[in-house]
Design a protein around this nucleic acid. Structure first.
Length: 356
DNA sequence: ATCTGTGTTGAC
DNA sequence: TCAACACAGATG
């Protein structure tokens, strides 16, 4: 459904034309008031008018702060608000590079493409979904996360990076894993989805010890929303099930018995999991039943690895897809250890270190 | 009470 | 695709 994600980087082929930092216009005063030009009539209106930004993707806020936004597929993606105009402009630059690729038009001069700095940042951008990058920008944590990733990557590095160009293609495509037509009990009050055994064992193998305890799987939907489901094996019914978190998905998507849920996985090294659904008649979820307004964020890009219990999971053996859990990480927000793993993963993508 | 960011529109 | 503008709803 989303082959476009691969092309979004290639379609934007503007050469690295850079809107050299517009230094022309002086900074405008904040607090919603633009320059008072006319002391007579229209003063009222004029003084209320917000100052335009000289930066692309930057809009003034009534309180003198600055918002950043980017458009994709006819929809605005809000990137957050910032005290300084240039911060908002930087946020836009980051987003536009993630959304439209390295050659996108930015506000500030990009780093020379062949520097290690640029390579590391490109790698960082690429190892996170658009949603994650947007989230970092909105929370103002992008720089911290980038720096952390650079540190860990350099730490692990044994040879020079080879860039990320190959990443774009492979990383963006997905493979269909399987579909299931949901039963009444899958969408009922049991809060569980039974995963047909053959699919479960093929695509979501549980390691011994994790079978009954279960693991947390992260799935991204069409709106880039991340869904976390507990996945485990129920001895009582000899079934593989998605439990905790499932009912929220049913509710938000207004899933009905007979609808079809489908599971995909990124073919890139990140192995990001995706979930989608459609009605039995086959109409796509995007336009069918009235559901809660979906975030206006756009198509899906892969994230890094997926995580269980808020823990990074990677494929210990990409051939048999056995899930391995790194027990040194913990639940909750990304922590340092997690960042180290993330960094290692980035390095792996760059063939800086050998994959497991 | 204040601020964010969405709804909407029209220019490009 | 993009910014201008108004303001609903979120947040403190």
């Amino acid at each position: 459904m989303d082959a476009s994600s691969t092309e979004d980087l290639s379609t934007t082929t503007e050469t690295t034309s850079t809107v050299a930092a517009p230094v022309s216009t002086p900074p405008l005063i904040g607090s919603g008031g633009s320059v008072v030009l006319d002391m007579e009539l229209g003063l009222e209106a004029e003084s209320r008018k917000l100052p335009s930004s000289r930066f692309k993707g930057v809009v003034p806020q009534p309180n003198g702060r600055w918002g950043a936004q980017i458009y994709e597929k006819h929809q605005r993606v809000w990137l957050g608000t910032f005290n300084e105009e240039h911060e908002a402009a930087k946020a836009y630059d980051t987003a536009v590079q993630r959304f439209r690729g390295r050659d996108a038009v930015t506000n500030f001069k990009p780093l020379p493409a062949d520097t290690e700095e640029a390579s590391l940042e490109a790698s960082f951008l690429n190892s996170h979904s658009k949603a994650e990058i947007v989230d970092m920008l909105r929370k103002h944590t992008y720089n911290d996360e980038l720096e952390q990733s650079k540190r860990t990557c350099i730490l692990q590095k044994t040879t020079g990076p080879d860039g990320v160009r190959s990443g774009h293609q492979s990383v963006n495509s997905r493979e269909q894993l399987f579909e299931k037509t949901v039963t009444p009990s899958d969408v009922g009050k049991l809060n569980r989805l039974v995963i047909p055994k053959q699919h479960a064992e093929k695509h979501f193998p549980l390691q011994i010890g994790n079978t009954s305890k279960g693991v947390l799987l992260h799935f991204e939907d069409i709106g880039m929303k991340v869904w976390r489901f507990r996945y485990s094996y129920w001895n009582s019914s000899q079934s593989y099930v998605l439990t905790k978190g499932w009912s929220r998905f049913v509710k938000e998507k207004n899933l009905k018995a007979g609808d079809i849920v489908s599971f995909q996985r990124s073919t890139g090294p990140d192995k990001q999991l995706y979930i989608d659904w459609k009605t039995k008649t086959g109409s796509s979820n995007t336009s069918s039943r009235p559901i809660q307004p979906v975030q206006p964020v756009q198509p899906v890009q892969p994230v890094q690895m997926f995580r269980l219990f808020g823990v990074n999971i990677f494929s210990a053996n990409t051939n048999n897809n056995t899930l391995a859990v790194d027990s040194s990480t913990c639940n909750g927000k990304r922590n340092n250890i997690e960042m180290v793993l993330l960094g290692m993963e980035n390095c792996k993508k760059q063939k800086i270190i050998d994959p497991l």
